[in-house]
Amino acid sequence: MRRSLCLAVIVVLYVASVPWYREAGEAPGYWLGLPDWVAVSVLCYVAVAVLNAIAWLSTEVPDELDAEALAAAEKRGDR
């Protein structure tokens, strides 16, 4: 659940990171030493990094197929 929520918010952050909602060619204001639209992108990517790290640490990466999956595989026949 926590992993799915993190991944969903990451998608939203990616959409927000691209300045499609700004007027093209507009002279920017400056924030954190960067053009404001760049600062927004960078902050979005910082948030993505934090959430993605949480998502990875919440992810189960098994080293073996579980018994049910193994039985299903054997039933269908492997190459």
């Binding site: 992108s41 960078v42 990517y45 993505v48 990466v61 080293d63």
Partner: peptide, 23 residues
Amino acid sequence: VMATGFMMSIVVVFHLLVPKLRP
């Protein structure tokens, strides 16, 4: 600055690959 986003997206998309492929 898009490059920071797309390099990070690689580590995001690995979620689709690693948990299924590893076992």
